[in-house]
Design a binder for these strands. Sequence first.
DNA 1: TGAAATGTTGGGGCG
DNA 2: ACGCCCCAACATTTC
Length: 492
Amino acid sequence: MAGPQVIISLDPSGRAEECLTEKDTAVVWLRQDLRMGDQPALAAAARTHKRLVPLYIWAPDDDGEWAPGAASRWWLHDSLKSLRESLEVAGSGLILRKGEALPSLLDVLKLSNASAVYWNVLYEPAARKRDEKIIRTLKKYGVEVCSFNGSLLSEPASILNKSGTPYLVYGAYWKRFLAEQIGTPLPEVRKLPPLPASSKHLRSLTLADLALKPKSSWDSGFTETWRVGEDAALKKLVSFCGGNIGDYAASRDVPGCEGTSRLSPHLHFGEISPRQVWAAARQHRGAGASTYCKQLVWREFSFYLLHHHPRIATEPLRLEFKDFPWKGTASQLKAWQRGRTGYPIVDAGMRELWHTGWMHNRVRMIVASFLVKDLRIHWLKGAKWFWDTLVDANLANNTQGWQWTSGCGADASPFFRVFNPVLQGKKFDPNGVYVRRWVPEIARLPTSKIHAPWESGINLDYPKPIVDHGSARFAALKAYDDIKRIKRGGPR
DNA sequence: TGAAATGTTGGGGCG
DNA sequence: ACGCCCCAACATTTC
């Protein structure tokens, strides 16, 4: 047996971590990095060990109240299938387990006689807490842990402002972010060390055992819309960078046309890395590519905020919003969820979400503003609905997005910025293409009335607005004014 | 990564 | 020619 080897982490942010290994088998614990390209943990393990056990543990209970929702599980099933095929082509395979991560991991380590575990870091609060505990336990057992940054362009902990505190304003963060050295993506792992000879005893489950796919088939729209997996993600990146990225600055706001990259679910599951996306986008000059990069860094900023303020997944960053007088009824929430609010642009978005597991970002802002400000329903109710229905559901982005719209987050849209669903529709869906696609019962209206059907005088099988925007806006501003007064200690 | 209210300006009609 | 009003267009302020 060779002497101890020293592995230097491939982490391009410069935080080299040293790993000592003595034995020849390692486990690569795959989590949200379901790819072969730019895969720091897998690449390092493959270079260093004679035998590898690629492992995925379905451990929804470890995530507490943020266990993956139905749409995420749908995606995960296909993503694991695709990854397993890639691992097999490379000469390996994928061991599947379910249940709490730590005991599963210990069991696989014991059965495979592995001396090391490799993984790419997760940044969600529950995962961080769990992984810290796992690291302590593994150290006790003499198992070494080699961890890498495979899902962010930067290390959240290392970016601070001049007074040593985390940034709270995106513009300032962005300026600082540009000073980061962003590494080039690692080459795809094509050849992997084999599974241990005893791999039959590793007691892998089948993909069906994980029961990720829905029992009743509500997913036909998903199947039509998405090609899951690393190959599809890379193709999408290439085609976006070869085409729409040039017009991205303008067309990203038009939900009726395919102006965005639609990479979000691929990024969430790690079928593609942000470094790969960054590298491809940076090859372009012009406003489109730089706007796109700025959006990609919003994702960084979201993780950054969640890292420094782990409570914000359920609590407003700006604590005065804890006293906000939320209202809204269960039936209003349901109307919003089902796309029956009577405002076409809102309903179109909610139906696109239900049908495809995705919603255009401009429309996410509109429907969120409507829930929080027009219906005055707590943003967490919206966040939970998105969590269950989005294939790209991501705790950092989802939290950041909802708090931004609600005015209670970092660098948030001020609360008094209330979207008018009619004007937003006219501005960003001027020909009504998007609304007609998702709200077919009003498709025959003239474009001049498509965003305000109640003005048409035509009898339609479509609800009247469940609230009047003008008065809802007025009431929301009044409620906001009240919490501001309370904060100042004034009269109620 | 708003919208609405309010203010300002300037041209044209008209007495 | 002048003052006055109207109003659109644009700018600024406020919510």
